[in-house]
Amino acid sequence: MYTVKEVAELLDLTVHTIRFYTDKGLVPGLQRDKNNNRIFNDDSIHWLTGAKNLKKCGMSVEDIKKYVDLCLEGDATIEERYEIIRKQKEAVLAQLEEVKFMAEFITNKEEHYRDIINQVIPDDTNPAYWSKETPITSCALKTC
């Protein structure tokens, strides 16, 4: 059996997070000692690990709770659980595309600044230097 503090260290979670997850019902069958302190066995650590990983994938606590409840119902809920995971995968892949765009944008911006620093091109990134003649299509307004 493990204490909240031991589980926090084991799973690299905060004590607060573990208490929050247990209060939200993400750890079925949670046991308590004679002083009403949470105590964890291997099964509860597995539930916490699953909750931690789903949360890292961006799943809401409410959806994790629904997933846990479906798991407890057994094999008849496999398709429903699959659907929860599939929808979360779609959300994660959409986020990945956003991050790819951000990485490309900032890489291009860095290269643009490097060219300015190396005096390959003039500084067109500072609005104080823009004039009415500066075209709207200026690199400063685009992804470069």
Rank of each mutant, 00 (worst) to 15 (best):
P28Y: 01
Y113V: 13
A91M: 08
N53F: 15
E79A: 13
K89W: 01
I85Q: 04
L30Y: 00
Q95K: 14
T125D: 07
V27R: 01
I121Q: 05
E98S: 13
L54V: 05
D75P: 01
Y113L: 14
E90D: 13
P122I: 01
G25L: 05
E73Y: 00
F40C: 04
F40M: 02
I117C: 03
K66F: 00
A94L: 06
E111C: 06
I121L: 02
K89D: 03
V99C: 14
A94Q: 12
E98V: 10
I84F: 14
K132F: 07
E79Q: 13
K56T: 07
V99Q: 13
L30T: 12
T134R: 02
A103K: 10
K89Y: 04
G58R: 07
A76P: 00
S60W: 00
K87N: 14
V99E: 10
L72N: 11
A94P: 00
N53H: 15
E80L: 13
R38A: 11
Y129L: 15
E110K: 12
Q119R: 10
V92M: 12
L54P: 08
P28H: 04
D123K: 00
D69H: 04
K56G: 09
G25T: 09
I39M: 09
L93Q: 15
V68W: 04
V120T: 07
H112P: 01
E104K: 14
I84G: 09
I78F: 12
I117V: 14
Y113F: 14
I116L: 08
C71I: 06
D63C: 09
F105H: 09
P127G: 02
Q88A: 09
E110G: 02
I136P: 00
L96I: 12
T49P: 02
G29F: 02
V61W: 02
I121C: 01
V27Y: 00
L93M: 14
P28S: 05
V61I: 15
A76R: 08
L54Q: 09
K55Q: 13
D123R: 01
Q119V: 06
